[in-house]
Design a protein around this nucleic acid. Structure first.
Length: 292
DNA sequence: GACATTGGCATCGGCGTGGA
DNA sequence: TCCACGCCGATGCCAATGTC
């Protein structure tokens, strides 16, 4: 049989995200043994080993990584189809805040697709620094927020109103020559920016001298400064300008943690606005977590 | 270093359910 | 009624970690 069982795919994605079958089982409302069995059958169906099992959990194999991408898309599509069949039409207004580090090249396309798929939804978007977005969310000025969190700088996802959407590698990028003997020229966003803090903190920790040579007002400006050779910055993968993709990771600088993008939801109640926000939050989740 | 504990996954037998 | 299927709980195995 050369097709996939959606439940098995859902279990597979949950297991990869949770990092172990034991952690994934309760999320799927299954026992560990049932989940293990589902994944065994999925591997049988795929005729490939999809997960490497170890005492510390599971990680996807190369084939597993490949299937993971397809599985996320299939599940997002299935959810969309289900909502469509149930007649779930989104209307009303949703105020959405997005950090401008989150998929800057794709975000316009994503928002345009939402506008096309949900014509009755009035989407008010705000893009900016994670701290500003989160403050606005806490003040109730926006309904949903996508913010960036850096392990070690920010606390981990800790409550039911926060959902991890995706993780991205972070790299040092720049178009300027660097020398171990001279302070590293940095191009950064202002001090409140998480990546500003991360860059300075990491370099101090490794006793690497640096000099802040350029402060940009936004990610777009920072990208321009990097391409122009005004300095070096640490950026998440999707925010690295295309011109510099090939120049990352060759600067001999300390390694960086993964960046985490987290969806913040508002409190739920029985109002139409709340229902719309919940449904749109799910769509955002399935759309962005399906991207790699 | 030896042993105990912990925490991971795989396997097995039994049970409930739904379809032929 | 039988059978296939999916699930659960129990159990076993194994490696990492903690304790003495």
């Amino acid at each position: 049989m050369n097709s996939f069982d959606m439940e098995q795919l859902r279990s597979f994605v949950t297991a990869v995200d949770a990092g172990s079958l034991t952690a994934a089982a309760p999320l799927r409302c299954l026992s560990q043994s049932a989940l293990s069995e589902q994944l065994r059958k999925l591997e049988l169906r795929a005729n490939q080993t999809l997960l490497l099992r170890s005492k510390s959990g599971v990680i996807p194999t190369a084939a597993g990584e490949k299937l993971l991408q397809h599985a996320r898309h299939l599940l997002a599509l299935a959810d969309l189809a289900w909502r469509d069949l149930q007649g779930v039409t989104l209307n009303g207004e949703v105020r959405l805040g997005i950090t401008d580090y989150c998929r800057p090249a794709d975000m316009v396309t994503i928002l345009a697709r939402f506008a096309r798929d949900y014509p009755h939804l009035r989407l008010r978007t705000m893009m900016g620094k994670s701290r500003d977005i989160e403050n606005a969310w806490q003040q109730g000025e926006i309904d949903l927020a996508i913010v960036m969190r850096i392990p070690g700088i920010h606390p981990p996802v800790s409550n039911s109103r926060e959902t991890l959407l995706l993780r991205e590698h972070m790299m040092w990028v720049g178009n300027t020559p660097t020398s171990q003997h001279e302070p590293l020229p940095l191009a950064l966003l202002p001090e409140g920016c998480s990546l500003h803090q991360l860059a300075c903190h990491t370099l101090k920790q490794h006793q690497r001298s640096y000099l802040i040579r350029h402060i940009a007002s936004g990610v777009r400006g920072l990208q321009t400064a990097l391409v122009a050779g005004l300095g070096v910055a640490c950026l998440n993968q999707s925010a690295i300008p295309a011109e510099l993709q090939h120049r990352s990771e060759s600067l001999g600088l300390p390694s960086l943690p993964l960046a985490e993008f987290v969806l913040l939801r508002g409190p739920e109640d029985s109002s139409e606005t709340s229902k719309t926000c919940v449904a749109f939050g799910e769509i955002l989740h399935s759309t962005l977590s399906g991207m790699t």
